[in-house]
């Protein structure tokens, strides 16, 4: 099976593809418009994961959400990682490819997590240079996702949303807007989520993530291990009104429910997306 181009993803709901659900998905393909998964899980040369993704790709457009490129790191881009991304993108022709506005390595040592970036002129220049390099090498544009931070760098001089807007302006990349992360950051650091969203350039937003969180002591932690909370659904409604309809992913990473529950969350999002079109301009 050779794919030559990506399939279009409409402004409807999709679900995160986890190996936990492989069997269910193969046996009864869920009624969702698209799926998203981590490309790093498909860096092998053969085996079950690749075979399963090939089967799924026949029926569903795909989005690849990377976790290992470490765009905010002062290390240079790992050429092996980039090469493997290119191979898996060529093979599966995803519609969206995305990464995070964070870092996960320094001096060749990896921490394999999404670490907080100080927002300064220096980090802005660095991130833009690395996104330029990545988009050039991959010969396509990418989306950058806002992450949760459990630490505010006292040295930050630029607010997060303005930082992202400037990255978009300089590199032409798009934004993957994670509304759960916006909410969690807002609660943890007493910020106004609407102020954040108002500073995000609307045309750049090409995908929205919705997820749940957990409370751990004094923190809300972005575990993506629950259904989407009512507060985040409200924020989503506001975002749809403000930005317009966008492809929306239900992202559920831990504490995985049966597939039907993911699909149910997706249909909730679909209902709200449908309402956008029903409302007269």
């Amino acid at each position: 099976m050779t794919l030559h181009c990506p399939a279009p993803i409409p402004a409807r709901a999709g679900i995160g593809l986890r190996s936990y659900h492989f069997r269910e998905i193969m046996e009864s393909p869920p009624p969702v418009a698209w799926m998203e998964t981590h490309p790093e899980n498909y860096f092998g040369e053969g085996g079950t994961a690749l075979r399963t993704l090939e089967r799924i790709r026949v029926d569903y457009p795909l989005s690849f959400h990377g976790v290992g490129l470490s765009l905010g790191s002062t290390d240079s881009i790992d050429s092996t990682h980039l090469r493997k991304l290119k191979e898996v993108f060529d093979r599966f022709q995803p519609t969206f490819v995305s990464e995070h506005l964070s870092w996960s390595s320094v001096d060749g040592r990896f921490l394999n997590d999404l670490l907080p970036l100080p927002y300064t002129e220096e980090s802005l220049n660095l991130v833009c240079a690395k996104i330029d390099e990545t988009q050039t090498e991959l010969q396509r544009s990418m989306l950058i996702e806002n992450v949760t931070q459990y630490l505010t760098w006292p040295d930050s001089t630029i607010p997060e949303a303005e930082f992202m807007a400037e990255v978009v302006r300089r590199t032409g990349c798009g934004i993957l807007l994670d509304l759960n992360n916006v909410y969690v950051n807002a609660v943890n650091f007493h910020l106004d989520p609407v102020r954040f969203l108002n500073a995000i350039p609307s045309e750049a937003v090409q995908e929205i993530h919705l997820a749940g969180f957990d409370r751990v002591g004094r923190w809300l932690v972005d575990t993506h291990g629950q259904a989407v909370y009512p507060e985040v659904w409200s924020l989503y409604e506001w975002a749809l009104h403000h930005f317009g309809p966008r492809p929306t992913l239900i992202e559920w990473d831990t504490n995985l429910p049966p597939l039907a529950e993911l699909v149910e969350q997706a249909s909730q999002a679909d209902a709200m997306l449908g309402a956008c079109y029903a409302t007269p301009a």
Partner: peptide, 17 residues
């Protein structure tokens, strides 16, 4: 304000050590 590389190095050390 320390350079970004120094911040990241110090953060990584705080994580691992």
């Amino acid at each position: 304000m320390p350079p970004l590389h120094e911040l990241q190095r110090a953060f990584a050390a705080a994580m691992m050590e």
